[in-house]
Design a protein around this nucleic acid. Sequence first.
DNA 1: AGTCATTACTCTGTTTTTCAGAGCGACTCC
DNA 2: GGAGTCGCTCTGAAAAACAGAGTAATGACT
Lengths: 104, 104
Amino acid sequence: MCDASVTHAFSILGKRWNGMIIEVLGRGPLSFAALRRAVGGISDAVLSDRLTELAEAALLSRCVAPGPPVTVSYALTESGERLLPVLTDLGAWARDNLPLDSTS
Amino acid sequence: MCDASVTHAFSILGKRWNGMIIEVLGRGPLSFAALRRAVGGISDAVLSDRLTELAEAALLSRCVAPGPPVTVSYALTESGERLLPVLTDLGAWARDNLPLDSTS
DNA sequence: AGTCATTACTCTGTTTTTCAGAGCGACTCC
DNA sequence: GGAGTCGCTCTGAAAAACAGAGTAATGACT
């Protein structure tokens, strides 16, 4: 049987884009549009869905500044931040172990 | 811009099931059917696809014993094995930081 | 004032991925 | 012979992701 906690981790990270959203927010809060640009290649609709899920999982928080103009920023929670060192390790693993042409 | 090595890592791990397949194989080589049972919930077709991809990324190797009966086993490569400590950290992070009802 | 750009999304049809189940030949066991 | 397991492949359905358009509210520029 697959370890339940790893399964749990991949219920979030095994969905396209979540790992990258969290990694990008590791550098500081961003607006929706800035996030989309930073992640690169994600559609608005999917980004919106992902942000909702990640907020529901309490990995990030959504802050509305009433404006005008209204601005919304997304920031990692402490739980989200605690993932960052693991993401760093993942990046190091990929750099050293994944063939260059395995990206697809 | 999202870090290229994290993007690279998630080109593998951001696809459903890959993290779990690697984690299960961390305990030793398994046949196709045993893998399917150990991962739990994955379809044959997707398992077959994933194993092909992971083999192409050199994270696992597929060994055919000619039999009879023919048996096929899948084992992590060194590159695959090097991911295991990171997966352990991921599991620990999930246990301590993900709400119980975030699994979906 | 009008135009353009940006914002934070929502909506919609299309494409891709995953799911659920059936099937095959080769074997083993009763 | 029948039932079960193996390692897949195949197929149609459902879900996820993609690609692009749209909205009201702003701000900047001409």
